[in-house]
Computed example of a mutant assay.
Amino acid sequence: MSDTTSNTESSDRPSSQLNFGAFKVHVLAHKIDVTLWVIRILTIFFTIGYFIPVYWSSYNAYYKALLANAATSALRLHQRLGTVQFNAQFLAKVLLEDSCHYLFYSLIFLYVPPVTLVLLPILLFAILHASSYALTLLDTLGHNAWWGARLLISVVEFQSRNILRLISFTEIFLMPLTVFLVLMGKGGLLTPFIYYHFLVQRYSSRRNPYTRNMFHELRVVFESFAAKPNMPGFIRSFILFVINLTCKLAPPQVTAQPHTQ
């Protein structure tokens, strides 16, 4: 009787314990993916540190978050493209990558005084991708490991579309904000022009159509707003002028592919 009970307990024990052996094997086999996950967690940590400064100043936390995002983007870019080649074809491939876009994004705002909204896209991307890979790590520990964390991850995954739409809206809204920063003396004269090229890259992204779709949604909203019968003529004309100017500045349409970063 006691032997049967002992055997039953020993057979039930593995299902309730964390499989650290499998976790270690996974980490050693996927060093770059795990490193990316750690840096994304640091990005989230630094961004929180910007809003709630405890261990360092908000100023330092802001630029640490940007640098962490730059490191993530550079490592992801290396992971996707491999060895660097010094030719035009390789450069063209680099410019098409979403990781290159956000490496460029970090470099733009490293030389501008802290702007809270700048951290929003990199924070949301860090949450999305860190949550996704955290689920993979939890699966290596055991399917019943840390159900609370799994619940939070499921919430993030359920809201992923809305998160990506918010990121794309922020990317667009930052364009006029960079112009405002120049007028306020808080940004360099080239900042809006450099950021415009970043926005063109996001609009032309092969894997992430959300920025392109958000431009279309905003156009529909503003055209409907301008078409209201009680809309003053000068406001209607200004809105239509901005819409036409934006359409002229937009790059040619491209065929989108499934999103990855």
Rank of each mutant, 00 (worst) to 15 (best):
V115N: 08
F125K: 09
L135W: 03
F109Q: 02
W147D: 08
L123V: 09
L141H: 12
Y102P: 00
A149W: 05
V115Y: 14
L103V: 01
W146A: 12
C100P: 00
S106N: 04
S131C: 07
C100I: 00
D139L: 15
L141T: 04
V155S: 02
T140F: 11
F109P: 05
L138I: 05
C100L: 01
V112F: 06
S99Y: 14
Y105R: 03
R161Y: 14
A145P: 10
T116H: 11
S160L: 02
F125Y: 14
N162T: 09
Y111T: 11
L117E: 15
R150S: 02
P113G: 06
L107A: 08
F125A: 01
S154W: 10
I153Y: 01
D139Y: 14
L128I: 14
S131F: 07
L135C: 03
A130H: 05
L141A: 09
L103H: 04
W146I: 02
I163E: 08
L151Y: 11
I122L: 15
I153L: 08
N162G: 04
V156A: 03
D139S: 14
E157Q: 14
P113C: 07
L135A: 05
G142R: 11
D98V: 07
H129R: 12
V115P: 01
A126F: 10
P113D: 11
L138W: 03
F158V: 02
S99Q: 06
A126Q: 05
L120Y: 15
F158G: 03
T140P: 00
H101D: 07
C100Y: 15
V115I: 13
F104K: 05
E157V: 07
N144P: 00
S154L: 08
T136N: 06
A134E: 09
P121F: 12
V156H: 03
L119M: 06
T136A: 05
I122R: 04
I127N: 02
V118W: 13
S106V: 04
L123R: 08
D139F: 14
G142M: 12
A149Y: 01
H129N: 11
S132D: 11
V112Y: 06
L103R: 01
L151E: 02
C100K: 00
I127G: 01
Y111P: 00
Y133I: 00
R150V: 01
H101L: 10
L107N: 02
L123W: 12
S160Y: 08
W147R: 13
H129P: 01
I127L: 15
N162C: 05
W146R: 06
E157A: 10
C100M: 13
P121T: 10
H129C: 00
A145S: 15
T116D: 11
F158T: 13
D98Y: 04
N162F: 15
A149C: 13
L103K: 01
L138N: 04
V156Q: 01
V156C: 01
L107P: 00
G142W: 14
H143P: 02
Y111Q: 12
P113T: 09
S131T: 09
I163N: 07
G142T: 09
T116Q: 13
S160W: 08
T136W: 02
L141W: 10
